[in-house]
């Protein structure tokens, strides 16, 4: 038996959450007396990046150097993943929860008739079947689910399995999935992507702004604080609805769900839909001029005051 871990590449780098999935897969392999293999599709990641997979506990990497896979084509990727599972005689697929990963895994689940658990938080309990703990109701609750099918797919939630990398390396084996013309029926015509910016779902530190900042022209303080911390930026839903900030920064129940070590909310009231998307953050700081803002109830640290006075002080303290 073996386990395949699907690796996602963004901006020429393997995503941090994919390294977490590697660590998860390696531990699961130990628990189940099997071997874990990582799967990299396309030529976007450099050899050094791929070698780093070894640092997280997996020593064998299948690499499909097929340039048609440089972009995340959902149909083609799902067929490549199925072929990797078959080649390795694998019964378990592990991946880091993401919009691309989900879109692929769902198709793989049908092809392999696999039980699928999204937002997995811990290693499974194997004492009576195969039970996993997952986040449900957008972080408002957890659920224990038994996966009853022989084949299984686990989507690991970010932050659920952090580990310290070792110096171990990985051997790369080339892999050539058979893909048909029809796998590329969807034509990707253009990609608009910010480069060099920290990705919100991956970030360990997030600074987020709400309607309290009054307009896009005032975002400088948020960006400066984020820069001083090396944090990603987020926002509340009205802020992206009003086009003050790009849509991929929208945090909450209907936006990006984040689980960073630190989430700083500035001028955000703390509506339940926003809280749902941030509740698994390790530490939450709230800055709001209204002492009654509901966000303070979900915070670890709070400052009641005007963001435009407080943020410059924080930026200065960080730089000093």
């Amino acid at each position: 038996m073996s386990i395949v871990v699907f690796i996602e590449v963004a901006d020429k780098e393997i995503r941090g959450s994919s390294f977490e999935a590697v660590g998860y897969g390696a531990e699961l392999a130990k628990m189940t007396n099997s071997t874990a293999v990582a799967l990299v599709l396309g030529n976007e990641a450099s050899a050094e990046q791929i070698a780093k997979i070894g640092n997280y506990g997996i020593s064998k990497v299948l690499h499909a150097q097929d340039s048609r896979l440089d972009v995340g084509n959902i149909q083609a990727y799902s067929h490549a993943v199925v072929q990797a599972l078959d080649k390795e005689n694998a019964t378990i697929l592990v991946y880091a929860k993401s919009s691309l990963g989900d879109a692929i895994a769902a198709r793989v689940a049908v092809q392999k008739k696999a039980s699928l658990a999204a937002n997995v938080l811990e290693l499974p309990d194997l004492s009576d079947g195969f039970a996993v703990k997952k986040a449900v109701f957008t972080g408002k609750a957890f659920q224990y689910v038994t996966l009853t099918s022989e084949n299984k797919i686990l989507a690991v939630k970010k932050g659920a399995f952090a580990m310290t990398p070792s110096q171990d390396s990985a051997n790369v084996e080339s892999f050539s999935p058979q893909l048909a013309e029809s796998d590329f029926a969807v034509k990707i015509t253009k990609t608009d992507k910010v480069t060099g910016e920290l990705l919100l779902p991956e970030a360990d530190l997030v600074v987020s702004g709400g309607r309290g900042l009054k307009g896009p022209e005032n975002w400088g303080v948020i960006l400066d604080l984020a820069k001083a911390l090396n944090a990603a930026t987020g926002c509340s839903k009205p802020v992206s609805d009003l086009d003050w900030r790009p849509h991929h920064e929208h945090v909450g129940q209907t936006g990006v769900k984040v689980s960073p070590n630190l989430y700083i909310a500035v001028g955000i009231s703390g509506a339940i839909q926003h809280l749902a998307g941030v509740s698994s953050s390790k530490c939450i700081v709230v800055i709001n001029k209204d002492a009654e803002a509901p966000f303070f109830k979900a915070a670890d640290y709070g400052i009641v005051g005007d963001a435009f006075d407080i943020l410059p002080k924080l930026i200065k303290a960080l730089k000093g």
Partner: peptide
Amino acid sequence: LTKSELYELPAARSGCKFIAADQAE
């Protein structure tokens, strides 16, 4: 292909520590 066993609610946060605005740093 799955069977729900149990639910659980997350532990509540321990409470908010307030810092005076004039000592924000």
